[in-house]
Computed example of a mutant assay.
Amino acid sequence: MSVTLQDVCFRYAGSGVGVSAISLAIAPGELLALIGPSGCGKTTVLKLIAGFLVPDRGRVLLAGQDATHLPTRARDLGIVFQSYALFPHMSALDNVAYPLKVRGLAAALRRRRALEALDMVGLAGEASRRPAALSGGQQQRVALARALVFRPKALLLDEPLSALDAARRCEMRDEIRRLQRAHGIAALHITHDQEEALSMADRVAVMGRGRILQLGTPTEVYRHPANRTVAAFVGGANLWDGRVAGPAAVDTALGRVVTRPHGFAAGAAVAVLVRPERFRAGEGPDGINTFRGTVERDRFLGSVRRFDLKVGSTTLSVETADDTPASSVHVPPDAVQVIVAESDCNGG
């Protein structure tokens, strides 16, 4: 089943905070990650799809049918919350079977389907245990099984992995993706973890101040951000204000930066973006895009080293696999992005 929002607007009474002109579509089997700063409207979008909120304008479509005013219980959506929301007095089996109970399925069928769902997430052997006797990762799996047991039309995930440790988060990312794809379920995943969004999603929507700033594949959003706001939010970023000096050059506080052809008019105010991993140690050919400075905050992280290079009043963030940071670095012109300078979202 597809999930579609058409020009949806919503404002919370008395605050003016909400979302505006939200249009997106999630295809069956697709996972769309929704990211953005706190307060930008991510959870509001989920609540509008789930039916917890009704839009002031626009439509919510499920499988092409208008569901804007349908109650939540009639939408057949699986929802997994950050808190898991398991019933503490119930066993894992009874927690998973509960959505089937409220739908009136017979006890024997409920048990069979719940056991199948627990087996699907690798917890068939823990069916009799209550949530307090389960680890955080196991509780998350129970919540996921409960969301899938009634074969929902779509899956809504609201920061479901934030309470897990790093290793368990990676494991659960793969598990959610496997199950969601195997069942061809359209899924919306809200997260603050950019790595999680980029690694899991088919597409990523970046929100700010109640609007979608960019919607695209993880590669598109990371490598070709629509504007400075998106560039600063997604991944590590070295961003400098600049003014176009030519078809492949921008003047910045660090001097003239040679770029690939960028298409901006001469004299235009722009932003220059260099991702930390695109720097190379040492001098560039003919000194092009070479920056010399003093190494600060050298951090060894195993597979990579991150260090800050103080160049005049500007600090460059550099990421490299080399063991020894360099006092000079350069960046190839084709690794320099010239983007729209506007920056109008930090929350909301």
Rank of each mutant, 00 (worst) to 15 (best):
S2D: 14
Y12T: 09
S15E: 07
G16K: 06
S20G: 08
C40F: 00
K42Q: 03
I49S: 05
G51Q: 03
V54W: 05
G64E: 05
G64A: 06
A67F: 12
S83A: 13
Y84M: 09
L86A: 08
L86C: 08
A92W: 01
L93T: 03
Y98T: 13
Y98S: 12
G104R: 08
G104F: 11
A107Q: 11
L109E: 15
G122D: 07
A124W: 01
G125S: 14
E126H: 09
S128A: 15
R130I: 10
A133L: 11
L134M: 11
S135W: 11
A147Q: 06
A147K: 08
V149P: 14
V149Q: 12
P152N: 07
L156P: 08
L161A: 00
A166Q: 14
M172K: 00
R173H: 02
D174P: 00
R178F: 07
A187V: 05
H192T: 04
E196L: 05
A197Y: 01
A201V: 13
R203C: 06
A205C: 07
G208N: 02
R209A: 14
G216T: 11
A226V: 05
T229L: 01
A232T: 04
F233C: 10
A237T: 08
A237R: 09
A237S: 15
W240N: 03
P247C: 13
D251S: 11
G255T: 10
R256L: 15
V258T: 15
T259I: 08
A269W: 04
V270E: 04
V270R: 11
L273H: 06
V274W: 04
V274M: 13
V274Y: 07
R278F: 11
F279N: 00
R280H: 10
G284L: 01
G293S: 13
R299W: 09
S303H: 12
S303C: 02
V304G: 03
V304K: 07
V311R: 06
T314F: 06
L316F: 15
S317D: 14
A321P: 05
A321H: 10
A326W: 11
S328F: 09
S328E: 15
H330F: 15
V336Q: 06
V338H: 11
I339P: 09
V340Q: 13
N346K: 05
